[in-house]
Structures are given as structure tokens and as C-alpha cells.
Amino acid sequence: MPLMTVIEAVRQAMLEEMRRDPRVFVLGEDVGKRGGVFLATQGFLDEFGEARVIDTPLAEASIAGIAMGAAMAGMRPIAEVQFADFIWPAMNQIVGEAARARYGTKSGVHVPMVVRSPYGGHVRGGPFHSQSVEAYFAHTPGLKVVVPSTPYDTKGLLKAAIRDEDPVIFLEHKRTYRSVRGEVPDEDYVIPIGLADVKREGRHATVITYGLTVHYALQAAETLAGEGAEIEVVDLRAVRPLDVETIVESVRKTSKALIVHEDNRTGGIGGEVSALIMEHAFADLDAPVMRCAGPDVPAMPFAPTLEAAFMPTVDKIADALRRLLAY
């Protein structure tokens, strides 16, 4: 089985889907000639031509709007927003239109489009290339929001997103792009959107997280294993819909839950997951649900020390786990 990085898995998934289905095409800034700023579509222009690999102007509203129109007309667009930080001009197309199309037309029109976007910090991206945007979209019914953490999951989930009949926001953490490598099967497989994955089993506490911090949580769990604690790590993989069953099953077992995300604490996915735990597993809790999240500051700082202060680092997660375990 070949080893791939996350960015290679992104590329592989799109390549296979475009070869499989002529309705699939990509559009976005620099996706053609340049092959994408992260090289996700490298070589695509040569193989599929200008009609299916479309370089767009710097106009996110248009990228999302064109994708939406094409999807309504029967195509399977993959729109790339170069950095999640720049997705806001497309907000109306995504939230105001695409998410509501099926509902507003009694399923008469639907929007099978994917909006891919690199997100997240700890890459020295500074205030304009580091943002986490998932909570804004997770709030919107009619959207699916996928946040993979591993190459294996990335390929299976991106294929599922492309084949999905409704809009999917597919958020790829920039730091995982080249720093996470794992086995990715050659064959065609999809991972259903909305299923979490237990990345490590344990019985003393559960960490619920997604994206880059899955890897930080796994490292923290390894540290804690040296201290005698068995930590379970649940990778949500999608923040909408949330996999209530897997979350609840894990917390019922461990009775203690720590939610980790890089996104700002207030209004983040953690609050929602915490509420689900209260609703479904209250009688099994042995400690208050805890969060380890980015602080409520407006943007990711550029200075490395401040960026590290913002991030839920391995140390911070391990520390939060120690407090949770001691409770």
C-alpha cells in the first residue's frame, strides 16, 4: 500500500474522481497552470484540459457561485478557495443559496458541489492565512462540513464529498498537508460523511477532536500512557453532521471528556459536542466536560511564541488531560 501525505491524498482522490466521472471538474485561483498553491491539482491541466481545470479570478463569490450554478445544472464541481481565510465573499453563495436550495425547492434543485479549502495555523501563516472557519459552516443546516486528519481519511472522505448530492465544505488543515504521512489504498473507497473514527482506544478519558489536533491529541495520549492513563482519541472527521453515537459510546465508557479544537473557544464545535454529551450521556459523566481550544482572540498571531500560545499544543492537551483525570 503506498504511503502518501495528506496533500497527495487530496490530489489522488480528485484525480480518480475526475477520471471516473466526466461531470467532475475543478475551479479556483491558480488551480490550472500553477497546479494549485499547494500543488493539489498539479498536472490536472495537462490531463483534463482547460474545460475541466479552470483558473478563476481572485473572486471567491464567483468561484462559489459558478460552482453552485454548474452543480444545479448537473455537474460535479470542486471549487477551491485558496485559503479558508478568504472564503467570506462566498458566504452568501454557500450559506444563503447553496445550503437552502434543496429545502427551498422541495428537493426540486440540489447542489452537489464541494468547496475545498485549506485552513488552520501552526504554520506561521499569521492573521490572514491561519484561520479556522468550520464553526461558521457547521452552524448551517443544508451543509456538510468535513475536516479530515489523515491521508487515508482524506481520500475516502473527499471521494464521498464529490459524490454527495448536496454541498460539502471540505476543510484541509495546512499543517497536515505535508507533515502527516500514512498508508492510502490504491483502490476506490469512500468513507461515509458523518462517521467519527476512534483513532486510539482507552478507558480513562476521551479526547474528542478533529483536523490537526487529532495528531496533537494522539501525542498527548502517548505521553499520558507513560503516566499510566489510557486515553481514547475520537476523530470526528466531520463537524456537521456530528457522529453522536460514537461520541456518546466513548464517553459512556470513559466517563470523562476533553474536547480539543484550534478554532476559538466560544461558539466552537466544543460547545455543541459538550451539549450532546450532556443530552445523551449525563448519567455516565464522572467529571465536567472540559475544553482545550484556541483563545477568543480575533486572529492567529504571527510571532511564533504567540502562535504557540494560541494553539492547543501537545503540552496543553496533556495538561488538560491530567486535570481531567485527577478530577
Partner: peptide
């Protein structure tokens, strides 16, 4: 610590 290497989880470098 070294990352827990599991094929599906992937290696964090």
C-alpha cells in the same frame, strides 16, 4: 514523544 505509528492514523512528521 515519538508518534504512535499506525497505518491509517498516519505519521505526523
Amino acid at each position: 514523544p515519538a508518534v504512535d505509528k499506525r497505518a491509517r492514523v498516519g505519521e505526523f512528521m
